[in-house]
Design a protein around this nucleic acid. Structure first.
Lengths: 109, 109
DNA sequence: TTTATATATTGCAATATTACGATTAATAAA
DNA sequence: TTTATTAATCGTAATATTGCAATATATAAA
């Protein structure tokens, strides 16, 4: 028990859930927000700007990287994280298509 | 530890995360999909259509109801669940606004 | 009232997530 | 080389989520 039964859902449903997890924690929302806001590709400044330990931020960054939504470029001793525009657009299309289901639906209650 | 530090994030960040959780599990994605697909307001058919135990479906429905995304009308012994169109539109606006941040951002890497 | 049906709730086990201190690894500067 | 700086990883504790059997609740039908 406690294990999500991925096999009984469609690929699309699993992929939507997988991507939505990126936004299902305020720290990751904050990280993404910071990455968009700063013109310069911020790196470990995230640790200062968001009030979480370095290990915690690093873990969240790893999850976002695993989803493909961000990428990291090593620059000397620090790492520059950026949004992966291609993957971001892909994610946007998948999720907004799901959200727009309401347009063609007639509610009964 | 293990407790999300909501207090260090903005209200918007917390709300985005809260709503994104609705889509962060394939069972809930499947439930919402079924609710949109069926013109008649389906009720416990979800248990048959999705391969999860009745108690599990009921729990996911409760979470979606708590987020305000769906509402349930009691009809005899069964309950008719539907999308709450107003809340859905609200959620859509909040999340798509967040997703559209890429439009005004210039990536550096 | 009794019985059947549908849904919610409870209790519990398994697994996942969140957070952080400590450590490691890797590069830059002295 | 030695030392500082930055980020990743490891280990661990606390908490949350997922799933289901069993039970409770509530209405409909007999």
């Amino acid at each position: 028990m406690g294990l999500t039964k991925t096999e009984i859902f469609t690929d699309a449903q699993n992929e939507i859930a997988r991507l939505a997890k990126a936004f299902a924690h305020p720290a990751r929302v904050a990280i993404l927000h910071h990455l968009f806001k700063s013109n310069t590709c911020i790196c470990g400044d995230l640790v200062d700007e968001i009030g979480l330990a370095q290990a915690t931020i690093s873990q969240h960054l790893k999850e976002l990287k695993n989803l493909g939504l961000i990428k990291g470029n090593i620059e000397g001793t620090s790492v520059c994280y950026c949004i992966d525009q291609t993957k971001w657009k892909e994610m946007k299309l998948l999720l907004t298509t799901f959200f727009d289901q309401d347009i063609n639906s007639n509610n009964c209650c």
